[in-house]
Design a binder for these strands. Structure first.
Length: 141
DNA sequence: GCCAACGTTGGC
DNA sequence: GCCAACGTTGGC
């Protein structure tokens, strides 16, 4: 695989996938956790990320791509916080629920499952392929 | 530098 | 609404 894959979480009440599609592009703000911030810093232009609905839905609904690498979070008063710019790439034909991931031998060990509070986590290539299978999605890259 | 208290996130 | 898992804060 050429690019790395990540997973970003959003509460549907705050920023749902439908809004992501509507906006076409957004900066991923509000991360106030160092581990999540470090993941944002590791993102490279062209990397992909699953878009996960936390709290309500609890499922992976779409895929986005990083179009601008980390820069200071405009919504942060101070501190080292950063954002990246992302654009939607695809809506998954079938959403993949947390329950499905937990029940799957490959995905059960995803950072998403192991560290429920981490809002930006990495996804391995094996996990990526498996989620695509579960989603009935055939990535064209 | 340790640790108790507290706050937040997010699954159940 | 509850609670587990973490992160942060502040007293010592």
């Amino acid at each position: 695989m050429i690019a790395n894959v990540w997973l970003i979480k959003s509460e549907p009440i705050k920023y749902p996938w439908s809004k992501m599609l509507e906006d076409g592009r957004t900066f991923w703000d509000g991360v106030r956790n160092h581990q999540a911030k470090n993941n944002l810093l590791s993102m490279r232009k062209g990397d992909f990320a699953f878009f996960y609905h936390s709290n309500e839905g609890m499922e992976i609904v779409g895929v986005v791509q990083v179009v601008k690498e980390a820069y200071p979070d405009p919504t942060a008063q101070e501190g080292p916080w950063v954002v990246v710019d992302v654009v939607p790439v695809a809506t998954l034909p079938k959403s993949v629920t947390l329950a499905q991931l937990k029940a799957d031998p490959i995905c059960a060990y995803m950072a998403l499952v192991r560290q429920s509070r981490l809002s930006v986590c990495s996804v391995s290539e094996a996990e990526f392929r498996r989620v695509c299978e579960l989603a009935d999605w055939n990535p064209e890259f």
